[in-house]
C-alpha cells in the first residue's frame, strides 16, 4: 500500500471534469433494485459517474459490485429504478441494446478473450461486424490500440500464447476499439499473478489520465486511492459510503467503512 501512496503526487491532478457536453452524468443509477429470484442484490442504488470521472467501487465479496457493473450495460436486467447512459435510459421500451452497449466498454476478471482469434482479430471483430468499419481501417486502429497497451509485437498471437497480463491488456484494447464513452472494469487484476498486476494497472492509469470515464471494481486499494476521483463502498447491495479517496481512506465516516478498511488495509 505504501508505494501506491507515494505515487499520488505524480498523478494527483487527474481531477474530474463535471462538464460533459450534455450536462448529464455519463452513467447514472437512479433508485435501482435488482433481485436474483428472492435475493435482493441491489437495494435502491443511486450513483452518478460524470464524464471523465473515475469511480472506484469497493466492498466485501457478494455485496453486489459485479451486479452493479453488469446492470450498466444490461448484462443483467433490473426490477425497478432506472439506469441512464449519457442521459438516455437503457431499460426504456424500444431501446436498441446492441447500440447502447457499443458506448459502454467492459473488461472482465477472466479476460473472456475469444480463443479462436488472434489478439488483433479479437480487437477488430466488433468494429467490423458492429460498426461496419472497413477491414483495413479496423486493422490500423487495432494495431494502434495494441501498440498503446504495449502489445505491438503480439498482434498475431492467440490468447493461449499470451500471459494473463497480456490477455487482460488485449481485452482492454478490444473494449476500447469500439470507442466507448465509458469503461467498466470488474476486478480485472484479480485473476493475475501478482507480478503481472502492475502492467494492467498501468494501462488503466494511462486511460484515466487521458480522461476516460471509468467505473472500476477492484480490491487494489492503492489503485483506488491513487487513480480514483471517488470511492464507493458497497455492502449488502447498498452504497454505504462515497467520497474522495483521501477522505474515504483516511477519515471514513461510517462504521461500516471503518470496519471494511480495517480488514483490507
Amino acid at each position: 500500500m505504501s508505494d501506491a501512496t507515494d505515487e499520488i503526487d505524480e498523478t494527483g491532478e487527474t481531477a474530474a471534469m463535471d462538464d460533459p457536453a450534455t450536462g448529464e452524468p455519463m452513467v447514472e443509477f437512479d433508485g435501482v433494485n435488482k433481485y436474483f429470484g428472492s435475493a435482493h442484490v441491489l437495494k435502491d442504488v443511486d450513483l452518478a459517474v460524470d464524464a471523465e470521472e473515475v469511480v472506484v467501487v469497493v466492498g466485501p465479496s457478494g455485496s453486489g459490485k459485479s451486479t452493479l457493473l453488469r446492470c450498466a450495460n444490461r448484462l443483467e436486467e433490473i426490477q425497478s429504478g432506472q439506469v441512464r447512459i449519457a442521459g438516455e435510459p437503457i431499460t426504456a421500451p424500444g431501446v436498441d441494446v446492441n447500440r447502447l452497449r457499443q458506448r459502454v466498454g467492459m473488461v472482465f476478471q477472466h479476460f473472456n478473450l475469444f480463443p479462436h482469434k488472434t489478439a488483433l482479430a479479437n480487437v477488430t471483430l466488433a468494429p467490423v461486424r458492429v460498426r461496419g468499419l472497413r477491414e483495413d481501417e479496423a486493422r490500423r486502429r487495432g494495431e494502434e490500440l495494441l501498440t498503446e497497451v504495449g502489445l505491438g509485437d503480439q498482434l498475431d498471437s492467440y490468447p493461449a500464447e499470451l500471459s494473463g497480463g497480456q490477455k487482460q491488456r488485449v481485452a482492454i484494447a478490444r473494449a476500447l476499439a469500439m470507442d466507448p464513452d465509458v469503461m467498466l472494469f470488474d476486478e480485472v487484476t484479480s485473476a493475475l499473478d501478482p507480478e503481472l498486476v502492475g502492467e494492467v494497472l498501468e494501462v488503466m492509469r494511462g486511460l484515466a489520465r487521458e480522461g476516460m470515464t471509468m467505473l472500476v471494481v477492484t480490491h487494489e486499494m492503492g489503485f483506488a486511492r491513487e487513480v480514483g476521483d471517488r470511492v464507493v463502498l458497497m455492502s449488502e447491495g447498498r452504497i454505504v459510503e462515497t467520497g474522495p479517496p483521501r477522505e474515504f481512506f483516511d477519515a471514513p465516516e461510517t462504521e461500516r467503512a471503518q470496519q471494511f478498511l480495517s480488514r483490507v488495509l
Partner: peptide, 17 residues
C-alpha cells in the same frame, strides 16, 4: 464458457452474430 457470450454481447454484437 458463459463469459464468451457476455464478452461478445458487451461489445454490442447481436445474439446471431
Amino acid at each position: 464458457p458463459e463469459g464468451q457470450m457476455e464478452a461478445a454481447r458487451s461489445l454490442g454484437m447481436s445474439y446471431v452474430d
